[in-house]
Amino acid sequence: MTDPAPPLVRFEGVCKRFGETVAVDGVSLDIAKGEFFALLGPSGCGKTSLMRMLAGFEAPDTGRILLDGIDIAGLPPHLRPVHMMFQSYALFPHLNVARNIAFGLRRQRMPQAAIASRVEEMLALVRLEGLGGRRPDQLSGGQKQRVALARAIAPKPSILLLDEPMAALDRKLREETQLELMALQRRLGMTFMIVTHDQDEAMVVADRMAVMRAGRIEQVGAPREIYDHPANAYVAGFIGETNLLSEGDRWRAVRPEAMTLSTRPQEGARAGTIAEIAYFGDRTRYVVAAQNARLVVSRANVGAPLALSVGDAVWVSHAADAGALVSP
């Protein structure tokens, strides 16, 4: 089946340099309507520049950005139906929560009554009922994050951009927020694009993601697809943990959970000694020092535990077709 719907956003050969540095180097990418898309990569890989070009804060040097099939090159940020949730939240400190949320609606010249009801709706959506009169400095970090989200969603943008939206939250709150964000996106049917350096976050929230390195896209796909079939050694190493085992002139990337640990010699297994044991409750992670390789094995803690300690001799093996063959 072919997809007849044109993409909501299309980047076409987009390049951007800042002085000598090439921030974005020929990126072409489609984002479909209604999808939760993640741009993933280490800091400085160009993911933020790409997002800022879509928001209109930077202009591409070459290439085009199409929104609903229309080149938006000449449109300043205030005319783009694209809203951004800033990493710092950027809440207006002189306005209370309700007026922050109403900010975009007022610019659209929406009638007062409609604004008031939309603000109430947004406060309920992010579970901040009754806090409309608070000042931003009277809110907790998690509450500020939700106000920022409500403010960006309120004017119903075609696409919501989230710039490292959970970077300032502690781990537990971050995990809760990820789930809430997914539920919210599904409920609203809005297109979300998140920029993050946290692969776990991207894997959890995104329908599809792009892994970036040094201004280029290394791979685009669903999290599962990228995890199971990384395009190259870089992607395999960046998304989750991986063992890169040489196989001819290529590498076989095998995930730690696809490796088997045995205390007795096995046909075709690599011999080594246990170098590290880390217990995570649900699983145990072993690092095995084998001949010229450091192998990581993850074992689910079900059934009888392995009586192993650091220094013990072990044999590590994997199914012949485990993981994926990647180019170096």
Partner: peptide
């Protein structure tokens, strides 16, 4: 980023100044 947020939400550079920079 406050100015960028204002522009992102529909302010021209001039309105962003009057709505955000000036009151602050």
């Amino acid at each position: 980023s406050l100015i960028e947020a204002a522009q992102d939400l529909g302010c021209t550079p001039l309105t962003a100044f009057w709505r955000v920079t000036f009151p602050l």
